[in-house]
Design a protein around this nucleic acid. Structure first.
Length: 476
RNA sequence: UGAGGUGUAGCGCAGUUUGGUAGCGCGCUUGGUUAGGGACCAAGAGGUCGCGUGUUCAAGUCACGUCACCUCAACCA
């Protein structure tokens, strides 16, 4: 036990020093390492496998909505970036620019994409002529670069991986419907694949995407009560279609500008998973995206039949589609227990002479640390069912935690107390920028999303009639 | 970009005050014994002390500069 305590102390205290806990966990579990260039990260196999699982799940959902994958170039002519006024103003400070190539200075500097609305808009302009060409809905999985001042693995890095979807529609209604549809796709993906509850809703003018008419976001509550923007969808109106001349001849014979949208989630989702579910022992990975869903730890592997039984079990589980690992390294069982707990594997199976005698295996789930026994004969069904159960219960537990920490506020003081206590605060807002800025000043909190229902009477800052009910929180 | 902190073996650290032969724990390698919550014994390998310039007979240690990382604040997915 003394040694166990010693080990745990290698990870900072999750309650007292959450930022350090996060850094310790991502490095020790080998999700990530720092790259040689400031703000860059190397996503190591264990971390990248999570990303691949996220991609697989999201991609299938995108396809169901009629979205196709494509790939657009990394380099964007500088002149494209400046076509949409708000867009360039928002992104200019953090764009990296290529000025030299082939040993010569380039005639026109090239941006490394911070996002691809501009280059995709320019191509859509070329491809779309008729209302019969619409809607166009494409997605690309790629890297983007934003030269951030301060960085943290997965949460904010100079370069990151994401998907960006871009669509064009013939009408405002259809474009807005797509914007909201993708927000729903993200929300359901977060629930079903990441076991992560989120709040969704429209963003304020201050918080919206540079160049958008309206931005919608999903916000997740991290262990410390801060909010993380886990995904956004944007209704871009005709802002980009006018800048990039995306026009089509409508059925009534008139030439019209298209209505566009964009939507994205990034490797930040991995950070969200870590900070939503993690505990003092380390990661707790949601079964659907966990690189290893079940790990088998042999006990007394030199005793007759143990190794063989473990291998056979591994084969059987793998054949049913479970991502299973047999840890046959010569570390001690205790070491393996701690290691795989830190790495967040949802289910650990212990198999030793005692179990084999009874025809059972000992199963320990990571989220609750509860142990149970499953008959070896029923291993496939037993583990599959357990993984499904863990996914659901992790969601329910996280949702319950979140619900408890959404508090209401009528006054500025209550709002401040709320966020100080690590809560999301639901409060009225008159809708003016001054009051929004004041909340930031006195509480270091921002408007995360506008609640669907406006049930507040007055603005938490100025006391005037509330135009919206807002979820305020401190944010990453 | 502002404030604070840290860079010494793969990891965690001591040594810097007062300049004088590079240390500890874990990990790693080899052999053996072990095994149901980070096992034990024995023998080994591994460092131009972040980088640069300077002071000095002599720099991990002093001075100046620089880079990286961490935490907090401002900006973003």
């Amino acid at each position: 036990m003394a040694k166990d305590t010693q080990f745990v102390s290698q990870i900072a205290d999750i309650e007292r020093d959450f930022p350090q806990w996060y850094t310790d966990v991502v490095l020790k579990t080998k999700l990530v390492d720092y790259g040689p260039v400031k703000g860059t990260m190397v996503i190591r196999p264990y971390g990248y496998a999570i990303w691949e699982n996220i991609q697989r799940e999201l991609d299938a959902r995108f396809r169901e909505t009629g979205c196709e994958n494509a790939y657009f170039p990394l380099l964007i002519p500088m002149s494209y970036m400046t076509k949409e006024a708000e867009h360039v103003e928002g992104f200019a400070p953090e764009v990296a620019v290529v000025t030299h190539a082939g040993g010569e200075k380039l005639a026109e500097p090239l941006c490394i994409r911070p996002t691809s609305e501009t280059i995709i808009g320019s191509m859509y302009s070329k491809w779309i002529q008729s209302y019969r060409d619409l809607p166009v809905v494409m997605n690309q999985w790629c890297n983007v670069m934003r030269w951030e001042k301060t960085t943290r693995p997965f949460l904010r890095t100079s370069e990151f991986l994401w998907q960006e979807g871009h669509s064009v529609h013939a009408s405002e209604e259809e474009a807005m419907a797509r914007t909201l549809q993708m927000l729903r796709v993200y929300e359901e993906f977060a629930r079903d694949c990441l076991s992560m509850p989120v709040l969704t809703g429209r963003k304020t003018e201050k918080e919206k995407f540079a160049g958008a008419v309206a931005t919608f976001g999903m916000e997740a509550m991290m262990h410390d009560g801060k909010s993380l923007q886990a995904g956004t969808t944007h209704y871009l109106g005709q802002n980009f279609s006018k800048s990039f001349d995306i026009r089509f001849l409508d059925s009534d014979g008139s030439l019209k500008y298209g209505y566009t949208t964009s939507f994205g989630v990034s490797t930040r989702l991995i950070g969200a998973i870590i900070m939503t579910h993690g505990d003092q022992r380390g990661l707790v990975l949601p079964p659907v995206v966990a690189p290893v869903q079940a790990v088998i730890v042999p006990i007394a592997s030199k005793k007759e039949g143990v190794t063989e039984a473990c291998r056979a079990l591994k084969e059987r589980l793998a054949r049913t589609g479970i991502r299973v690992k047999l840890d046959d390294s010569d570390n001690s069982p205790g070491w393996k227990f701690n290691e795989w707990e830190m790495k967040g594997v949802p289910v650990r199976i212990e198999l030793g002479p005692r179990d084999l005698e009874g025809g059972k295996m000992l199963v320990c789930r990571r989220d609750t640390l509860e142990k149970s026994e499953i008959f070896l004969d029923a291993a496939e069904e037993g583990i599959s069912a357990l993984l499904k159960q863990i996914a659901v219960q992790m969601y329910e537990a996280a949702a319950a935690r979140m619900r408890k920490r959404i508090v209401g506020a009528q006054t500025a003081e209550q709002l401040l107390n709320g966020v100080n206590g690590g809560n999301f605060v639901r409060a009225g807002w008159c809708g003016c920028r001054e009051c929004e800025d004041k909340v930031k000043e006195f509480a270091q909190a921002t408007a995360r999303v506008l609640a669907e229902e406006n049930d507040a009477q007055t603005c938490v800052v100025c006391g005037k009639k509330a135009a919206h009910t807002v979820i305020f929180a401190r944010a990453y």
